[in-house]
Design a protein around this nucleic acid. Structure first.
Length: 259
DNA sequence: AAAGAAATCAACCGCAGCCCG
DNA sequence: GCGGGCTGCGGTTGATTTCTT
């Protein structure tokens, strides 16, 4: 079936010469996991020539990969400034807040997390944070308190569970109320992220073509993120997301967003 | 110890937007 | 203004790892 489709595509491409070329000649490219040699070739080439021109890079670097694949491998894994390992609690909070603001714009979110890639943030959201919010009774798609999901009885328990998920050891099944597959089904039933902003015109975001800059300030026990939203007209608005963790506020910083 | 289930993450795919001729 | 090429993004898949029974 697949081969027939490929064949058919090929025939069509030959017949209509002006048609858009595929990003690479799939017959001549490797797929799947990268070998160490391939990684090294890519690193060496980019060190010499720099990033860019992904389409011609594989051939120039002697790689049997398509340009897209090279770019992805470099950005997500090989780039020297890629930060690997568990997400800090700060980073988790920031992702949740930015997701509430921006929706699934992973590259924008990742851009605010030094050393993190969009793919990593996306994976982390889908595997950890989504469930975390669900468990807290928050709809991860629109960041509203959801009615169908039981509210947390003890906030402290929930915040502590969040700490474990971001901690050093891998804690499996921190939020076992729902298997992933059923969560994915749920996704179909609720609107996209940010939709809550759409059904409430008063809270609609002005324009998401924003220049976001975030500064993290930590002093003593207080902790806050300042987010500067700069729109196309260079009109700047500052949004302070107070995530202070002092004793007055035993609630997870995450929930402050929904107050 | 083994098998099955669940979780994680790297990589692929297709589309949209930008840029340039 | 239009069309084609390239890049980047987000959704999805599938292999691998880890946990549970």
């Amino acid at each position: 079936m697949d081969k027939m489709e490929e064949l058919a595509k090929g025939i069509v491409c030959v017949c209509v010469g002006a048609m858009r070329k595929p990003c690479c000649d799939k017959q001549d490219t490797n797929k799947g996991a990268w070998s160490k040699q391939e990684d090294q070739k890519l690193i060496d080439y980019i060190r010499k020539h720099g990033e860019g021109c992904w389409r011609t890079l594989p051939q120039a670097a002697g790689l049997l990969r398509c340009g897209k694949s090279c770019r992805l491998r470099w950005i997500n894994y090989l780039r020297p400034d890629v930060k690997r390992g568990n997400f800090a609690e700060d980073e988790e909070d920031l992702i949740i807040k930015l997701h509430a603001l921006l929706g699934n714009r992973w590259s924008l979110i990742a851009g605010r997390l030094p050393g993190r890639t969009d793919n990593e943030v996306k994976n982390y959201w889908n595997s950890h944070l989504r469930r975390k919010l669900i468990n807290m009774g928050i709809d991860p798609n629109n960041h509203r308190l959801s009615q169908g999901v039981p509210r947390p009885r003890n906030t402290e328990n929930n915040t502590s569970s969040s700490a474990t998920s971001s901690g050093g050891s891998k804690v499996k099944k921190p939020y076992t109320s729902k298997p992933v597959k059923s969560i994915r089904k749920d996704m179909d039933q609720v609107s996209d992220a940010g939709s809550c902003l759409e059904d409430d015109p008063s809270s609609r975001l002005p324009d998401l073509n924003l220049d976001l800059s975030i500064t993290t300030t930590s002093a003593n026990n207080s902790h806050s993120h300042k987010i500067c939203l700069q729109d196309k007209d260079r009109k700047q608005n500052e949004l302070i997301m107070d995530t202070s963790r002092d004793n007055e506020c035993p609630v997870s910083p995450t929930l402050l967003l929904f107050r």
